[in-house]
Each structure stands twice: as structure tokens, then as C-alpha cells.
Amino acid sequence: MTPLLQVEGVSKFYGARIGCEDVSFELFPGEVMGIVGESGSGKSTLLGCLAGQLAPDAGEVLFDTRAEGLRDTLKMSEPERRMLGRTDWAFVHQNARDGLRMGVSAGGNVGERLMAVGARHYGQIRGQAIDWLGRVEISEDRVDDRPGQFSGGMQQRLQIARNLVTGPRLVFMDEPTGGLDVSVQARLLDLLRGLVREMGLSAIIVTHDLAVVRLLADRLMVMKGGHVVEAGLTDQVLDDPQHGYTQLLVSSVLQV
């Protein structure tokens, strides 16, 4: 089976400091990979390198494109990479404001990706936007409201709808539940889990919240100081942590 994403020795340095170093892994279709670690451990740097937002100093990021099979996205031309960014890839930001157009209605936000790939029929665009708002539990009568009038949880769900509307195959998520209260988090996670399973999405989720990966991720990578210190099946890593840092991380979770 061909992996959807194959990462080989990706390194990114900020001057003399390590962003992330020599990270390799494979992600298969329908698989959800979690990346956990403390602040500054290089999680977001790694995600940025994979999603084409940062240029790594070394390594390869091979993506299984629809037309030509595995290709190194770092060597692609910018138009090709941006095309991937609005068709097969999706990026969910921690702060919904980074991923939404705040001056455009919810429907316009969801429709933007459709129009970016050539949809020119207003009725169909709007129909799909309403359908997707429904899937992320935003009622139809909010379709013409701007994201600024939405709560934090709704903004995050709107961002997810906006990203998934073109049927991507790989979703990058950077702390998708950050800054949300626990009940809203739980609903969002439930929703995400449903969507990921239903659409057969592959996803890479960066988070420091172990509950998120426990619920969503099939596999887990633990990062510290820019290096991957432990990787494996989620339950295995969380229930039987081997590396000292992972043990610390798991035991740091407050038990209520």
C-alpha cells in the first residue's frame, strides 16, 4: 500500500537553534497521526514544513498526488503547491481568525474554496455551503452572518467546514481545540471524529492535549527539543510510555 504522505529526514533550523531535526514517518490513507509535545518542542515547525508553509533545510515530503503518484512537495512549483493547498490539503488553524475571512459571511467563507477551484454557479455554491454548515452543526439561518458574530466554538467549526468542503484527502490541524472550553472541545472532537471516519480522511493533528490524541489519533509521535523521542500506536504510547519525557507527559495529566 502506498503511503499518502511520506516524510524523510525533515529538518528545520532557525539559525543555530533547532526547529525540528531528522523527522521521518509515513502516513497511510484514512490514518490519523497525532504529534504531541510541550511548547517549543518543534510540533508547529514540523507541521508548517509538511504543509508547505515553511521551507525545511533538509529532507523530503512526498505526497501521493492524484495524477502522478508520490511527489516531493518541496520541489513542486509554487502554483502546484498552492493548488494542492486548496484541493487535496486542508489546514485548520488554532485560532479560527487566522483561517477565516472575518469580513465575509459564513456562506462566503465555505464557498471560497469551491470558487477557487472554479465553481461558478451561485445556487450550487450556496447549497453546498448550507449543507456543510449543517454537517458542522451551524444552523442554516446563520449562513449570511459574519464569523465575528459567532462564538469561538462555532468559528472553529466554520473553519473546519470551510476546509473540508472541497473533499481534501489530508488535513493538517494545529491545536484545533486550543482556547475552547471543555464542553465545546468535547463536541468539536466528537464532530471531528465523525467527519474523519465518514470521509476517510487522513489527518495530522498537532496538540499538547493528550485527550485529543487519545480520542482522534491512531498513531502518536512525541516530540521534545525538536526530536521525535517516541512513536507508536496511540494507546500503546499513552498506556505504556517508554521514554522518560513521555512518562512525564502522561503523568502530568490531571485526573479529575
Partner: peptide, 11 residues
């Protein structure tokens, strides 16, 4: 990349 122009018309 002119999808955004249609977002204005959509609005």
C-alpha cells in the same frame, strides 16, 4: 488565483 473575486460577488 481569482476565486476571491467571486467571493465578493457571492456576498
Amino acid at each position: 488565483e481569482y476565486g476571491l473575486m467571486h467571493v465578493k460577488l457571492y456576498e
